[in-house]
């Protein structure tokens, strides 16, 4: 395994210049994610319209993998309906954890395929997706609980 497989250009770019960084206010759904192992914390805010993600922002503090993953996630899910987002989540999860998972149809997110060679870092990449799921799951509730990847 080589460092370049993990820290690809697109990941370094999204880490340095995270897209959709910030907080939607008002938001239809909010969730906080925390990875106590490394202290990564992020908040995902969503605006929903007709079962689709009309807008999404994230903010937080984390390693390059978690920030880049969250940044790329926000780009990938904006405008998508929940079913498509769920499909995407499954594909990303497979990409991060299965050796021969396909990276087709994933666009930029395919850059995360190197993470599976670094098992200690898989949780960094998946934190934003678990946080997104928590936000979606509690979209109709008044307050969202924190999720943890530990």
């Amino acid at each position: 395994m080589e460092l370049q497989d993990l820290y690809r250009e697109v990941i370094l770019d999204h880490n340095k210049h995270p897209r959709n960084f910030g907080r939607l206010d008002p938001a239809d759904a909010v969730a906080n994610g925390h990875n106590p192992l490394c202290g990564d914390k992020l908040t995902v805010t969503l605006r929903l319209a007709n079962d689709a993600i009309q807008d999404v922002k994230f903010e937080g503090n984390g390693c390059a993998i978690s920030v880049a993953s969250a940044s790329m996630m926000t780009e990938a899910i904006k405008g998508k309906d929940r079913a498509s987002v769920n499909q995407l989540f499954d594909k990303v999860h497979a990409l991060l954890t299965q050796q021969d998972a396909p990276s087709t149809d994933l666009g930029k997110l395919a850059a995360l395929s190197g993470v599976r060679e670094f098992p200690a870092r898989v949780k960094c990449a998946s934190l934003c997706w678990h946080t997104l799921n928590a936000a979606l799951a509690t979209a109709d509730a008044a307050s969202a609980p924190a999720v943890s990847t530990e």
């Binding site: 460092l3 993990l6 820290y7 340095k16 106590p36 192992l37 490394c38 202290g39 990564d40 984390g62 390693c63 390059a64 993998i65 670094f118 200690a120 870092r121 960094c124």
Partner: peptide
């Protein structure tokens, strides 16, 4: 600056250097 300790830990490990990164 500009490098999260967790990334530092991974890169150092890649160079054979075992350190602790975290809280």
């Amino acid at each position: 600056k500009g490098v999260h300790p967790h990334d530092l830990g991974t890169i150092l490990d890649h160079e054979g250097v075992a350190i602790r990164a975290g809280h």
